[in-house]
Amino acid sequence: MGSVRTNRYSIVSSEEDGMKLATMAVANGFGNGKSKVHTRQQCRSRFVKKDGHCNVQFINVGEKGQRYLADIFTTCVDIRWRWMLVIFCLAFVLSWLFFGCVFWLIALLHGDLDTDYKDDDDKSKVSKACVSEVNSFTAAFLFSIETQTTIGYGFRCVTDECPIAVFMVVFQSIVGCIIDAFIIGAVMAKMAKPKKRNETLVFSHNAVIAMRDGKLCLMWRVGNLRKSHLVEAHVRAQLLKSRITSEGEYIPLDQIDINVGFDSGIDRIFLVSPITIVHEIDEDSPLYDLSKQDIDNADFEIVVILEGMVEATAMTTQCRSSYLANEILWGHRYEPVLFEEKHYYKVDYSRFHKTYEVPNTPLCSARDLAEKKYILSNANSFCYENEVALTSKEEEEDSENGVPESTSTDSPPGIDLHNQASVPLEPRPLRRESEIGSRR
Rank of each mutant, 00 (worst) to 15 (best):
L287N: 01
R351C: 15
G52H: 02
P429R: 12
L142R: 01
T149N: 04
Q42L: 10
L425F: 07
F270Q: 12
E307A: 05
A233S: 11
D267F: 07
E311M: 06
D294Y: 01
T316W: 13
C217D: 03
C319H: 15
N60I: 03
R428G: 13
L109R: 15
I258N: 00
N7Q: 09
D116F: 15
C319K: 11
K193R: 04
L108S: 14
V260F: 03
F88K: 01
I415K: 11
A312D: 05
E15V: 04
C54G: 14
D17C: 07
V158S: 02
V12K: 11
T39M: 08
L253Y: 13
P427L: 03
R320T: 10
Y374C: 14
Y323E: 00
I266W: 14
P404V: 09
S291R: 11
G111V: 02
T149L: 04
K50M: 02
E283Q: 09
S127M: 15
C43P: 14
C364E: 07
A70W: 05
V235S: 05
Y349S: 12
L113K: 02
G402C: 09
M188R: 08
P429Y: 07
D120Q: 00
F270R: 04
R226K: 13
D116K: 09
V26T: 10
V403M: 13
L324R: 12
K195I: 11
S10G: 11
K193C: 07
W83C: 03
T6I: 08
F382C: 14
R268V: 06
F155R: 07
L390T: 15
I275Q: 09
F137E: 01
Y68C: 14
L239Y: 10
E387P: 02
N135C: 04
L417Q: 11
K241Y: 07
Y345L: 15
T23P: 08
H110C: 00
A192I: 14
E247K: 06
Q420P: 13
I179T: 10
G154V: 02
H53W: 06
L109Q: 15
I256T: 08
D114G: 15
N419Y: 10
Y153D: 03
E15W: 03
M188Y: 05
Y356E: 15
R46C: 02
I164A: 08
C217M: 09
M309Y: 14
G176R: 03
G331T: 00
H279N: 01
S350E: 14
T39W: 03
I256A: 07
N224T: 12
V134L: 05
E327Y: 01
I302T: 02
K354R: 09
L253F: 04
V337E: 02
S411A: 14
Q41Y: 07
I106K: 01
D267I: 03
N326K: 06
Y153T: 09
R243Q: 13
R212V: 08
M24E: 15
K195N: 08
K292R: 12
Y9C: 11
Y349C: 13
H110L: 01
M211I: 06
L225H: 11
P429L: 12
S411R: 09
I184T: 05
V403W: 05
A91M: 12
V310A: 05
I281K: 00
Y334S: 00
I106Q: 06
E395N: 11
E146C: 02
A129S: 10
D51Y: 03
K241A: 05
E371M: 04
I145R: 01
R320C: 07
T150K: 07
R82D: 03
E63G: 12
A207V: 01
L376A: 11
H53N: 04
M211P: 14
G62S: 12
D213H: 14
A139V: 00
L376Y: 10
V4Q: 11
Q172S: 02
V77W: 13
I269N: 04
Y9S: 15
H110M: 01
P404M: 09
L430E: 14
D257K: 06
N60S: 13
H343Q: 11
I277Q: 00
Q255W: 09
G29D: 15
I59W: 11
R221A: 00
T245N: 14
K36P: 13
G31M: 03
A22R: 13
S246I: 08
F182V: 04
H418R: 09
G65V: 15
N297H: 13
G18S: 08
P194D: 05
Y374E: 15
I106R: 01
S392W: 03
P424C: 12
S124Q: 10
E311Y: 12
G18M: 06
D120R: 00
Q42D: 15
R5S: 12
W104T: 11
F171Y: 04
L69Y: 06
I209P: 00
A421N: 13
E357M: 07
L425R: 12
V235H: 02
R8G: 06
M219L: 09
G154Q: 03
D17P: 06
G62I: 13
I302L: 11
S3N: 06
P274T: 09
N419Q: 11
K128E: 04
Q293R: 07
I295K: 03
A186H: 07
I266E: 14
W81H: 05
D296F: 06
D180N: 04
D348H: 00
E387S: 01
S127L: 15
T407C: 11
A186Y: 03
P194G: 12
Y288T: 00
E400K: 10
L69A: 12
P286G: 01
L376D: 15
P427C: 10
D114H: 09
I151T: 13
C54T: 10
G248S: 11
E16K: 04
T6Y: 03
E387K: 02
N386H: 10
D282L: 10
K125G: 15
S242W: 13
Q42F: 06
P359K: 09
V347W: 06
A366E: 00
